[in-house]
């Protein structure tokens, strides 16, 4: 199961789907995307721009944009908001030191006009690490319960092992219908 399965399940009337993946640097966005595509995730380097995956099947287009999360790149995120159908926000659950920064960046995204109403999936990534915070603690830290203007979901996962990723994708599929 992966991105190719998503595309096969979409309604015939859908013609394209744009998913935007954001999150702090080293949160595991590219690893998650590679894992979902059955690509070897072991050789991932920090993304210094974007990685765009476009899948074409039966004249349907799925475009997943993974934008680098380094501080110097974040000011450019806004250039990729328009037309987004679903936002995936990836969190390094073991990076306790930057959890506040992580929450701040998410809250700024949720205020963006161009992302208004866009469903957000939070991947509580790196659950395979011993010191990972449980998803519930991350939900509290990011104040997800305060979100009223859109659908949201938090999904514990490990981009490294692939666990939980498919569940997150299934939620996205439901949320955009």
């Amino acid at each position: 199961m992966g991105l190719l399965d998503i595309i096969r399940k979409l309604k015939k009337s859908d013609k394209e789907l744009r998913i935007l993946m954001l999150g702090l640097d080293n949160s595991g966005k590219t690893t998650a995307l590679k894992q979902l595509s059955d690509e070897d995730p072991s050789s991932v380097c920090p993304t210094q721009g974007f990685m765009l995956k476009s899948i074409v099947h039966n004249s349907f287009n799925l475009n997943v944009w993974d934008i680098g999360g380094q501080k110097t790149i974040r000011p450019y995120w806004r250039n990729y908001y328009e037309g987004t159908d679903a936002l995936i926000y990836v969190v390094d659950s073991a990076d306790r030191r930057r959890m506040e920064e992580c929450g701040l960046e998410l809250s700024l995204l949720l205020e963006e006009e161009k992302l208004a109403g866009v469903p957000v999936l939070v991947f509580a990534n790196k659950q395979d690490l011993l010191n990972a915070l449980p998803a519930q603690d991350i939900a509290d830290s990011l104040e997800l319960n305060g979100i009223r203007d859109r659908q949201w979901q938090i999904q514990p996962c490990s981009a490294k092992t692939g666990e939980g990723l498919q569940k997150g994708l299934t939620w996205i599929l439901k949320s955009i219908r």
Partner: peptide, 21 residues
């Protein structure tokens, strides 16, 4: 195949993966 990316970040390295049936 035609793809319009729009914005490209200065001093960036970018990847386009195109999967076709």
């Amino acid at each position: 195949w035609y793809f319009e990316f729009g914005f490209v970040i200065p001093n960036s390295t970018n990847t386009w993966q195109n999967v076709i049936e």
